[in-house]
Simulated scan of single mutants.
Amino acid sequence: MTQTLAVVLCCIVLLMPRAGLAYPVQGPGATSCAEFAKMYQADPSIEMIFFTWAQGYMSAINMSVLASDRLARELAGEAADQKRAFRSYCANNPLKNYMDGVLDLYGKLPFYRRN
């Protein structure tokens, strides 16, 4: 029960609008890598919230790219590998945001080829 409450409280804090800040990204992606690492260390289940955000963000980028007749990226890789890439990025770049790690991985993914 305590663990579930902690996850819910983290979600509320992460998803609250930041008053006075003009930033084009909201949600878990706007969280610093250092903060993500602290939250992950305290409760590894928090990673699912971040990972779900990352999948949605990369999907939105793909939709935008496809709408402009450019090549999208293949998102169907192993979830465990993608999560590991995000954790590694954040461990090596604590002053960056989680979103920066998502963009780093996105740029390394192979192009999606339509059949």
Results as ranks from 00 to 15, higher is better:
Ile49Arg: 03
Ile49Asn: 00
Phe50Thr: 04
Phe50Ile: 04
Phe51Ile: 04
Phe51Thr: 03
Thr52Phe: 07
Thr52Cys: 11
Thr52Arg: 10
Ala54Pro: 00
Ala54Cys: 03
Ala54Ser: 04
Gly56Thr: 06
Gly56Ile: 03
Tyr57Ser: 07
Met58Val: 05
Met58Cys: 10
Met58Tyr: 03
Met58Gly: 05
Ser59Trp: 04
Ser59Ala: 11
Ser59Glu: 13
Ser59Leu: 14
Ala60Phe: 12
Ala60Met: 09
Ala60Asp: 05
Ile61Gln: 08
Met63Arg: 14
Ser64His: 11
Val65Asp: 01
Val65Gly: 07
Val65Ile: 14
Leu66Ala: 15
Ala67Gly: 10
Ala67Leu: 06
Ala67Arg: 11
Ser68Asp: 08
Asp69Lys: 11
Asp69Trp: 06
Arg70Phe: 03
Arg70Asp: 07
Arg70Tyr: 10
Ala72Ile: 04
Ala72Trp: 00
Arg73Phe: 02
Arg73Tyr: 05
Glu74Asn: 15
Glu74Pro: 02
Glu74Met: 11
Glu74Tyr: 14
Glu74Thr: 02
Leu75His: 05
Leu75Ile: 11
Leu75Ser: 08
Leu75Tyr: 13
Ala76Arg: 12
Ala76Val: 09
Gly77Arg: 09
Gly77Glu: 07
Glu78Val: 07
Glu78Asp: 14
Ala79Val: 11
Ala79Cys: 09
Ala79Phe: 05
Ala79Gly: 01
Ala80Asp: 14
Ala80Gly: 10
Asp81Trp: 05
Asp81Gly: 12
Gln82Phe: 07
Lys83Ile: 07
Lys83Ser: 02
Ala85His: 08
Ala85Arg: 02
Ala85Gln: 11
Arg87Ile: 06
Arg87Gln: 13
Arg87Thr: 14
Arg87Lys: 15
Ser88Lys: 15
Tyr89Val: 10
Tyr89Leu: 10
Cys90Ile: 01
Cys90Pro: 00
Cys90Phe: 02
Ala91Thr: 02
Asn92Leu: 11
Asn92Lys: 15
Asn93Leu: 02
Asn93Trp: 02
Pro94Cys: 13
Pro94Ile: 07
Pro94Glu: 12
Pro94Arg: 15
Leu95Lys: 12
